[in-house]
Amino acid sequence: MSWLIDARRWTMLFSGAFILGLAWIFLSRLENPSGGSNAPPNPQVGFTAPSFTLDSLSGEPISLSDLRGKVVVLNFWASWCPPCRAEMPAMNAVYEKSRDQGLVVLGVNTTFQDDENNARQAIQEWGLTFPIVFDRDGVSSRGYRVQAMPTTFFIGRDGMIRDIVFGGPLSEALIASKLEILMRNE
């Protein structure tokens, strides 16, 4: 590779890489980088969170789309799942600390693969104060491609999914660390 030592040839290579690189960066820049909120709903970071409407504990329906403007921690759980049970106190603590700043923790019980009575009993036992909804037919869980239990989605005020954590249990510090930037953004 003696041409690397040849000053003229190396300068040509370096300049060529620099000019072509810059040109490619310019040509492939995004005209509308904001685009996010226009992205179709998908259970993936960078996309709008798919909406759903499910019955809450009291029977009153809750729609995810109604929570737009708030930071949402969407937690899919089941009463038979030990990590789900273990992380519930942390979820509740974070909710209680930040609900006044516009945080909503929404627990989605995967009722289609759980026992609703057991779930209700567990909620009472844990003394959860955040809203819980029941996915009885599994449509919402499948829409979010929930394969691991628990699965937690962190959704910004604009309705976009900003992070996903598969598995658990999540500590209070971990949940808070994921929310830091989301809570700061208006």
């Binding site: 992070d163 996903i164 954590v165 598969f166 598995g167 999540l170 500590s171 209070e172 510090a173 971990l174 660390s177 994921k178």
Partner: peptide, 9 residues
């Protein structure tokens, strides 16, 4: 919680 390793952290 620092020692509770998670792939996402």
């Amino acid at each position: 919680a620092i020692v509770a390793l998670n792939f996402n952290t």
